[in-house]
Design a protein around this nucleic acid. Structure first.
Length: 681
RNA sequence: GGCGAUGUAGCUCAGUUGGUUAGAGCACCGCAUUCAUAAUGCGGGUGUCGGUGGUUCAAGUCCACCCAUCGCUACCA
């Protein structure tokens, strides 16, 4: 057999929010393909990473009050956890904010520049004078110039659907600071994409893309490509452009390079040959699985970059459509904006893997997750049809034959029919026509059930429970079931594992479809999958509704604290000096019985002039945001000369500083090294 | 506005290059069965194939226009 060497990538999720079921569609699609290829005996490296750069990330980190590096690492771990839970089995889950990526992005940029494909020119953009940063359209809101609707984004109006430049907005303002933006010039770096138009026209038609996707791209190709702006001005979270202080690579420049970076790290860990997968003329395969929203980046910019930098281009770009839930766009208020984490708390990920597989083809059509259909289909197909075959046969084998299967196959014709199907099912998997594969597998499951019904082993068992006939029938049933599980394993890896344990066989792979089990002892049957409980779906939708937090950054900015509560009247320095702020260490923290919001804190102010340790007891309304044990040992700031106040639960000797609106509360803490008792000025 | 995708039975979807009475699974109804996680088997379909108008001996399948839904419209993540 010809062994294929394939590098598979999944689109890099943006590190600005949690993974939801819409994301999951593309990852499950790719994971099934990877698992299938591996079962065939091919070599597959499967890489992904978080896409971590850009203004949005910078602002999100700022909002939470941590560095972008800390922010993206937290998100990365959460994303990776979600993928693992859904059995998406990456070899590595890296980050675009990595040394590998910095080196590769820098190197590729320099190769592009050396080839003369970088242009520089001044452009004029709206700029937030308060925050000192240039504003992308989505960070500007104002009145639509056409229909005068309020509160419209800088590129188009959601009310009258007209498009315009952000500079046309009436009364524009920055959604970050609320300030009126001003026009400002800046030098930008451009990638000369039009020079690649001929290559791209040919390449996009060379079979690397579905025809409908190529058609879509020809829209751009025919209307003429424009130069691509690849630089952003500081402040920007990303990689600085070599030889251009204060200029950074636009996030989409280094994002696809993240595929290479992730693989480079994997190569270092496993001793693989990086060049064998990326050098021009490489004989290996490179597959990108992406969503249809990012086709232009992967099928226009990316191949052009690769070509000029001397790398190979992708073998195939597999594009998936969007996910709708109950025929509608995912909606937070309807509870259909479902996070992977929320789903995982209520339902088995393999249900979703099967449901997606049953409806996926190679075309980038949108896929509807209809929960009624989901429930019926998963229950009928997986539990009612497939698992039922094992369930109804195993009892006889376990009870009457001590788990032993017949030595020979009494129905070679039927078995051969199931085995022959392997080739066609494999073709469907390979072509990413999972829906067709699932239909064929379920048709076989129907056939197996009908055959067992015809043979009626339970009737034979009544008169001759230990007869060879009963053993033969049920052995055939178990073997047919085993074949079906081989075919389903790419979709249901966890269930396949349970089946391997039940059958007492090593890990199933595709080639074993040509064999059967004879004179083999199987284990006791255990329920392999439980039915979807509609109550769990209701609970999940409710949970999604109530946790609809996770607001879009721009919206948060609009409701900025500053906008809600403007800065207070001016004071003189002596006014400020009256307030004596001191660093304190939290010695102890505990819940207060009967108090809804309060925690009781014991604070250490260090030693006074007599060497006596000074402590304060403070009641603080931070119960909703902090657990007492998490506070102990931490430093914070105390208003030390505030008059003590008698509260219901005792005297509170001062206040500690915290930021927040009552819902989210953040304690103010000094940087490391501050000593209790130190005055804050 | 422009462009694209989709629109086939109650639900989810198949329908290859136009060719006999348009299919599958689920749901539903009836019967059988009771080994199996109330699972299984057999039987049951009068669907303006989104609409209108064309091309053709023949159109779900090709063409035009229209309607609906969704999406895209590159310095947007």
């Amino acid at each position: 057999m010809h062994i294929r060497n394939i590098l598979v990538t999944n689109a890099l999720p943006f590190a600005n929010g949690p993974i939801h079921l819409g994301h999951m569609l593309g990852y499950i699609q790719a994971d099934i393909w990877v698992r299938f290829q591996r079962m065939q005996g091919h070599t597959v490296h499967y890489v992904c990473a978080d896409d971590t750069h850009g203004t949005a990330i910078m602002l999100s980190a700022e909002k939470v009050g941590i560095s972008p590096e800390q922010f993206i690492e937290g998100v990365r771990l959460e994303h990776h956890r979600d993928f693992q839970r859904f059995l998406v089995d990456f070899d590595i889950y890296h980050s675009t904010h990595s040394e590998e990526n910095r080196e590769l992005a820098t190197d590729i940029y320099l190769r592009i520049r050396t080839a003369g494909k970088i242009a520089m020119r001044k452009i004029s953009q709206l700029f937030d004078p308060e925050r000192g940063l240039f504003l992308a359209d989505r960070f500007i809101k104002g009145q639509c110039p056409k229909c005068k609707a309020e509160d419209q984004y800088g590129d188009n109006c959601e009310v009258c659907a007209s498009t315009y430049a952000a500079t046309d907005l009436i009364n524009p303002r920055s959604t970050i600071s609320g300030a009126a933006p001003v026009l400002k010039d800046s030098e930008h770096y451009f990638f000369k994409l039009p020079d690649f138009a001929d290559m791209l026209k040919e390449w996009t038609r060379s079979g690397v893309l579905a025809v409908s996707v190529a058609n879509k791209l020809s829209e751009w190709l025919q209307s003429g490509l424009q130069e691509w702006d690849i630089s952003r001005d500081a402040p920007y979270f990303g990689f600085e452009i070599p030889g251009a202080p204060g200029k950074y690579f636009y996030v989409w420049l280094d994002a696809p390079i993240g595929y290479m970076a992730s693989f480079r790290k994997l190569c270092a860990e496993k001793g693989l040959d990086f060049g064998a997968y990326w050098n021009e003329g490489a004989s290996t395969e490179l597959w990108h699985f992406i969503g249809k929203d990012i086709v232009n980046f992967h099928a226009l910019f990316w191949p052009a970059m690769l070509e000029i930098a001397g790398y190979r281009k992708p073998t195939q770009i597999s594009v998936n459509g969007f996910l709708t839930v109950n025929s509608q766009k995912m909606s937070k208020s309807r509870g259909t904006f479902i996070m992977a984490d929320t789903y995982f708390r209520h339902l088995n990920p393999e249900y979703l893997r099967y449901y997606f597989a049953a409806k996926l083809g190679q075309n980038p059509d949108d896929l509807d997750l209809n929960f009624e259909d989901f429930t019926l289909r998963v229950n009928a197909d997986l539990v009612g049809k497939v698992v039922n075959i094992a369930s109804r046969c195993a009892g006889f084998i376990n009870k009457n034959f001590d788990g032993m299967l017949s030595a020979t196959d009494s129905q070679p014709v039927l078995t051969a029919e199931f085995q022959r199907a392997a080739a066609e099912i494999a073709e469907h998997y390979d072509a990413r026509e999972y829906g067709k594969a699932m239909r064929q597998i379920m048709a076989l499951a129907d056939k197996a059930n009908a055959w067992i019904a015809e043979k009626q082993p339970w009737a034979v068992s009544k008169t001759a429970p230990q007869s060879k006939e009963v053993q033969d029938i049920c052995s055939v049933g178990i073997n047919l079931f085993r074949l079906l599980m081989i075919y389903l394993k790419p979709v249901l890896p966890q269930m396949a594992q349970q089946v391997e344990a039940f059958l007492q066989v090593p890990a199933l792979h595709w080639a074993q479809a040509s064999t059967t089990l004879g004179s083999h002892r199987i284990g006791t049957f255990i329920p392999l999958m439980t039915r979807v409980d509609p109550a769990s779906i209701t609970a999940m939708l409710d949970a999604s509704k109530s946790s609809l937090a996770v607001p879009v950054p721009a919206e948060v900015a609009l409701l900025s604290p500053l906008a809600k509560e403007p800065i207070a009247a001016e004071i003189e320095f002596p006014d400020f000096a009256k307030v004596d702020l001191r660093v304190v260490k939290i010695l102890h923290a505990e819940h207060v019985e009967g108090a809804d919001k309060l925690l009781k804190l014991t604070l250490d102010l260090g030693a006074d002039d007599k060497g006596q340790t000074v402590q304060r007891t403070v009641f603080s309304g931070i119960k909703s945001a902090y657990q007492p044990q998490d506070l102990i040992g931490k430093h914070t700031v105390l208003v030390a000369n505030l008059k003590a106040r008698k509260m219901k639960f005792g005297w509170s000797e001062g206040m500690i500083l915290a930021a927040g609106d009552g819902k989210d509360i953040f304690l103010i803490a000094p940087h490391e090294g501050a000593v209790p008792g130190t005055r804050v000025t």
